[in-house]
Amino acid sequence: YIGSKISLISKAEIRYEGILYTIDTENSTVALAKVRSFGTEDRPTDRPIPPRDEVFEYIIFRGSDIKDLTVCE
């Protein structure tokens, strides 16, 4: 799965898409590269977040912050 395009939804209901870079089982983290944030879209939340235009080089997510993770390709 390393190198695959991943769609990830955080506990804050924010969806991110990026390339799976590393999975650290010891620290329970997932790192994505070339990440875009799509905001909360239409998911119900107390704090709606708009999508962002910039592409983040890397984002490291803690396993406890991840609600859903899907391989896109």
Results as ranks from 00 to 15, higher is better:
E17R: 04
Y1N: 04
V35F: 05
E26D: 10
V71N: 07
D46P: 10
K11I: 12
T45Q: 02
E17K: 00
E57I: 00
D68C: 12
S4H: 09
K34S: 10
R43L: 03
L20T: 06
T40Q: 01
D65F: 02
R36F: 08
K11Q: 08
T25A: 10
G3Y: 15
D65V: 05
P50I: 00
Y21H: 09
I6P: 00
S7W: 15
Y16P: 01
R47E: 13
I49D: 00
A31G: 12
G18W: 01
E17C: 05
D46N: 14
V35K: 00
D65Y: 02
T22I: 05
P50E: 15
I19D: 06
E17Q: 07
E26H: 10
T70W: 05
T25L: 07
E54A: 09
R47N: 04
S64C: 13
R43Y: 15
I59P: 00
R15V: 03
I14D: 02
T22D: 13
I66G: 02
Y58M: 09
I49M: 12
L32T: 03
F61D: 02
K67V: 06
F38M: 14
P44M: 15
D68Y: 08
K34N: 14
E57H: 08
R15L: 00
A33I: 15
V55N: 07
A31E: 12
I59A: 10
S28V: 06
V71M: 13
D53R: 08
N27K: 07
K11G: 06
L32V: 08
Y21G: 10
R43F: 07
K67C: 02
T40H: 02
P50C: 07
V30Y: 08
R52L: 09
E57L: 03
E41A: 00
E17F: 05
E26G: 12
I60Q: 13
D24A: 06
D65L: 02
A33D: 11
T29P: 01
R52D: 14
C72H: 11
G39S: 05
I14E: 06
G3P: 01
I6Y: 11
E57M: 02
C72M: 07
P50F: 10
I66K: 03
L32K: 00
F38L: 05
T29H: 13
T70L: 05
P48V: 15
D65A: 07
S7Y: 08
R52N: 13
E41K: 15
V55K: 07
T22P: 02
D53H: 13
P44D: 11
E13K: 03
D53K: 14
D42W: 05
V71P: 15
V71A: 12
R36S: 05
G18Q: 02
R15C: 02
K34E: 13
Y16V: 03
A12I: 15
D24W: 03
S10C: 10
F61S: 04
T45F: 08
E41N: 03
I2R: 04
T40Y: 00
E57R: 08
R62W: 04
K11D: 11
T45K: 04
I60Y: 06
E41G: 06
S37W: 01
P48D: 10
A12N: 13
S37D: 08
C72L: 13
T25Q: 15
E13T: 05
L32R: 01
P51I: 11
L32M: 12
E54W: 04
E13V: 01
E73A: 11
K67A: 09
V30L: 14
P51E: 09
I2N: 02
I6R: 02
K11E: 13
Y58N: 15
I66A: 02
G39W: 01
D68V: 08
L8R: 01
F38K: 08
D24Q: 01
Y58E: 14
